[in-house]
């Protein structure tokens, strides 16, 4: 009994210590921005591997989710004779919720895990240590470009996701099911507000991008430098990122759209 309580306490202290380490790590990464001439090419390379290489999965997922929303929405709305509202439904769902959340989840699985594994492996093969011994701070040289790249890439990916999704929904709704294109767009434009819906959605993706990238690079940097350690760190990245995204989504939605 006492043992269990002690174990619980130890676990709590471990969690607090990890949060503290993650915070100190973040300060180390964010202070001291490298010279633009050095930092910029590094950032571009990371944006490529984090953002551009995630594009395929984002576009395909966005297309299918939009098409499914189109089908489902049509079946439900046609019962009320208001299938013209399908555009509004698809756009609001994607821009407010599915765009940011699904993109962040896919990002954690595709790019976040890769970041963790890459950094973890660099740690295990002493690349980070050797960089430190060459008088180069790996936090600035290796971690910072990756963190920023994730932070920048996610909002872009989410915007593309929403756009492709709406297009997919239009494909199903207008081209296949015969909703008038005019009322599709018209309803959408009448009900989607730029500041309330689009910008709030973008704000969500900014938060998610920051959290997902932070978790990914921290797990890589903090991992036990063995094969088992790296594999567990990769798992943690995906699990923690997903939970953080879904939890934060609820909080952000409540603050943005909740009436209280």
């Amino acid at each position: 009994m006492m043992d269990n309580i002690a174990a619980l306490g130890r676990l709590g202290l471990d969690v607090i210590a990890t949060v503290g380490r993650a915070g100190r790590f973040l300060t180390g990464v964010l202070v001291g921005v490298p010279r633009p001439s050095v930092g910029f090419p590094l950032l571009v390379r990371q944006l490529y591997s984090v953002g551009v290489l995630s594009l395929a999965i984002i576009v395909v997922s966005g297309l299918f989710i939009g098409m499914v929303l189109g089908l489902q929405g049509y079946t439900i709305l046609s019962d009320y004779g208001s299938e013209a509202a399908i555009g509004q439904m698809i756009a609001l769902t994607l821009v407010r919720e599915l765009g940011p959340v699904v993109t962040a989840l896919l990002f954690a699985g595709r790019a976040g895990s890769a970041l963790t594994a890459e950094i973890g492996l660099m740690k295990a093969t002493e690349q980070l240590s050797s960089m430190e011994m060459m008088g180069v701070d790996p936090l600035r040289r290796v971690i910072a470009p990756r963190l920023w790249a994730g932070f920048i890439a996610l909002p872009i990916l989410a915007a593309i996701f929403s756009m492709v999704g709406i297009w997919g929904g239009m494909l199903v709704g207008v081209e296949w099911l015969g909703v008038f294109e005019g009322s599709f767009w018209g309803n959408m434009q009448a009900s989607v507000s730029f500041t309330e819906d689009v910008l709030n959605g973008v704000f969500k993706t900014v938060v998610f991008g920051f959290v997902c990238s932070w978790i990914a690079v921290f797990q890589g940097y903090d991992c036990v430098p063995t094969s088992a350690g790296i594999s567990s760190a990769t798992t943690k990245t995906v699990v923690y990122s997903s939970l953080a995204v879904l939890g934060l989504d609820f909080v952000l939605t409540a603050v943005m759209f909740g009436d209280f």
């Binding site: 944006l47 490529y48 551009v52 890439a153 872009i156 593309i160 756009m163 767009w185 434009q189 989607v192």
Partner: peptide, 21 residues
């Protein structure tokens, strides 16, 4: 990467003009 960023901005413009009117 430049194209990627431009595509992202274009998507945002699309969301602003075409979707939110």
């Amino acid at each position: 990467t430049g194209l990627f960023i431009i595509a992202g901005l274009a998507a945002l413009v699309f969301l602003a003009l075409q979707v939110s009117g």
